[in-house]
Amino acid sequence: TYYTVKSGDTLNKIAAQYGVSVANLRSWNGISGDLIFVGQKLIVKKG
């Protein structure tokens, strides 16, 4: 599943929405910090 980042989104918010961990979101998307951008597509695997 792909999720497109919207204004106001955070990794924590997206992780909670999908029932996954922030660590997994980072791993699946090659993100090291907490910086995400509006319009960015993130890979999300269902929890």
Rank of each mutant, 00 (worst) to 15 (best):
T1A: 10
T1I: 12
T1W: 13
T1D: 11
T1M: 15
T1R: 08
Y2I: 12
Y2T: 10
Y3R: 03
V5R: 00
K6H: 08
S7D: 15
S7I: 13
S7Y: 13
S7W: 10
S7N: 12
G8K: 06
G8M: 06
D9R: 00
D9I: 02
T10H: 05
T10P: 01
T10V: 05
T10K: 05
L11H: 01
L11E: 01
K13H: 11
I14W: 01
I14S: 00
I14G: 00
I14Q: 00
I14K: 00
A15P: 00
A15F: 01
A15H: 02
A15G: 08
A16T: 12
A16E: 12
Q17W: 13
Q17F: 14
Q17C: 08
Q17D: 14
Y18Q: 07
Y18H: 12
Y18M: 11
V20S: 06
V20Q: 08
V20N: 04
S21N: 08
S21D: 10
S21F: 05
V22M: 09
V22Y: 04
V22W: 03
A23M: 09
A23Q: 13
A23C: 13
N24D: 15
L25G: 00
L25Y: 00
L25E: 00
L25M: 06
R26S: 07
R26K: 12
S27G: 09
S27T: 14
S27Y: 14
S27F: 10
W28V: 04
W28R: 02
W28M: 07
W28T: 03
W28F: 05
N29K: 00
N29Q: 01
N29C: 01
G30M: 11
G30P: 05
I31E: 03
I31G: 03
I31Q: 04
S32G: 10
S32K: 11
S32W: 10
G33K: 08
G33S: 09
G33A: 09
G33W: 06
D34N: 09
D34Q: 08
D34C: 09
D34M: 09
D34V: 07
L35P: 07
L35Q: 13
I36C: 04
I36H: 02
I36R: 02
I36K: 02
I36L: 11
V38D: 07
V38F: 06
V38W: 06
G39E: 04
G39Y: 03
Q40S: 06
Q40E: 08
K41S: 12
K41Q: 14
K41P: 06
L42Y: 02
L42I: 11
L42S: 00
I43P: 00
I43E: 07
I43D: 04
V44P: 01
V44F: 05
V44I: 15
K45P: 07
K45S: 15
K45H: 15
K46P: 15
K46N: 13
K46T: 15
G47P: 13
